[in-house]
Amino acid sequence: MANISMTEVSLMCHPQSDAVGIAAIDVTATLGQGGEIKLVYRVTGALEALKIADRAIPNRADGLWKNTCFELFVGNSEDKSYLEYNFAPSGQWAAYQFSGYRAGMTELETRAPIMSMAQSVDVLTVFVTLYVPYTERHADLWVGISAVVVTKSGEISYWALAHPVGSPDFHHKDCFALKLEARSGA
Rank of each mutant, 00 (worst) to 15 (best):
A147G: 11
G144N: 15
Y158A: 07
S99V: 13
L39T: 05
N67C: 10
G104T: 05
C13E: 07
L178R: 03
H14K: 11
V143W: 00
D18C: 09
N67L: 00
F176Q: 13
E8M: 06
F70N: 06
I145Q: 04
T106V: 11
D174G: 06
M117A: 10
W93I: 03
S184N: 13
M117S: 09
F70P: 12
D26N: 14
S5M: 01
G35I: 14
I114K: 10
S116R: 10
Y134K: 03
L47F: 08
V121C: 07
W93M: 01
R42D: 14
F176Y: 14
D18K: 12
V126Y: 02
F70H: 12
A182C: 01
A56Y: 01
H138I: 05
L72K: 07
G91M: 04
N76V: 14
V123K: 10
A24D: 13
Y101V: 05
V165W: 14
P89N: 06
T135C: 06
Y82N: 00
I114E: 14
Y101S: 03
T129K: 11
V43C: 12
L31S: 02
S120E: 10
A94W: 11
L108V: 03
M117P: 04
G185I: 11
V126K: 06
S116P: 04
G45Q: 06
Y85V: 02
G185R: 14
R55A: 07
T44W: 02
S157H: 12
G45N: 04
Q119D: 08
G63A: 07
A53V: 00
A49P: 02
M117W: 01
D122I: 04
N76W: 01
L83I: 05
S17M: 11
S99D: 14
Y134P: 00
N67Q: 12
F70T: 02
K51Y: 09
Y82W: 09
L11F: 14
T28P: 02
F87G: 04
N67Y: 15
E78D: 09
P133H: 15
L31G: 02
S120N: 03
W159Q: 13
I156L: 07
L141D: 00
R60A: 10
G63I: 01
D62E: 15
V123T: 13
K179Q: 15
A95G: 14
I37F: 03
D140Y: 03
A94P: 01
T28S: 13
L130I: 04
